[in-house]
Amino acid sequence: MSDTATTQILAFIKGRFPDVEIDASQDIFALGFVNSLFAMELVMFVEKTFSVTIPNTELQLDNFRSADSMAALVERCSAAVAV
């Protein structure tokens, strides 16, 4: 998993919640940070920042629970484009 992707995603999340300490493995849904609008913002951020298109099959909650899981998604989507 890309440390750079994880760092960028975590910075985006922290930018929305600057008063909260959060690490890359924490479940942002369980913490109550995500509503439907922020979920869409996460998708848009990931696609734009990493120049990937997230297929509908990958639009699953588990892929967006943490910065680590989103970085893994970026890696999979990037690998699919490279093939």
Rank of each mutant, 00 (worst) to 15 (best):
M1P: 03
S2E: 12
D3N: 07
D3E: 14
D3S: 14
T7I: 09
T7F: 05
T7W: 02
T7P: 05
Q8E: 15
Q8R: 13
Q8D: 11
I9L: 06
I9M: 07
I9T: 06
L10R: 00
A11H: 09
A11N: 15
A11V: 11
A11P: 09
F12K: 06
F12N: 03
F12Q: 06
I13Q: 09
K14D: 02
K14Q: 13
G15I: 14
G15M: 11
D19T: 13
V20L: 15
E21Q: 15
E21I: 13
I22G: 04
D23R: 10
D23S: 13
A24R: 00
S25N: 15
Q26R: 14
Q26Y: 05
I28H: 08
F29D: 00
F29E: 02
A30C: 08
A30T: 08
A30H: 03
L31C: 05
F33I: 00
F33M: 13
V34L: 01
N35L: 00
N35T: 00
N35V: 00
N35H: 11
S36Y: 02
S36I: 03
L37W: 08
L37N: 01
L37G: 08
L37R: 08
L37V: 14
F38M: 08
F38Y: 07
F38V: 04
M40H: 02
E41F: 06
E41K: 15
L42D: 07
M44A: 14
F45W: 11
V46C: 04
V46N: 01
E47A: 07
E47C: 04
K48I: 00
T49V: 07
T49F: 07
F50A: 03
F50V: 07
F50R: 05
F50Y: 11
F50I: 09
F50N: 09
S51H: 14
V52P: 05
V52N: 04
T53C: 03
T53F: 10
I54Y: 02
I54Q: 06
I54M: 10
P55M: 01
P55E: 13
N56Y: 09
N56S: 12
T57L: 08
L59G: 08
L59M: 14
L59I: 13
L59V: 07
Q60K: 14
Q60F: 05
D62P: 02
D62C: 04
F64Y: 15
R65M: 09
S66Y: 04
S66W: 05
S66H: 05
D68E: 15
D68V: 10
S69P: 09
S69A: 15
M70V: 12
M70I: 11
M70L: 12
M70H: 12
A71H: 09
A71S: 15
A71D: 09
A72R: 12
L73V: 13
V74N: 04
E75H: 12
E75P: 01
R76F: 06
S78A: 13
A79G: 06
A79I: 01
A79R: 10
A79D: 04
A79V: 02
A79Q: 10
A80F: 00
V81S: 08
A82Q: 12
A82T: 03
V83R: 08
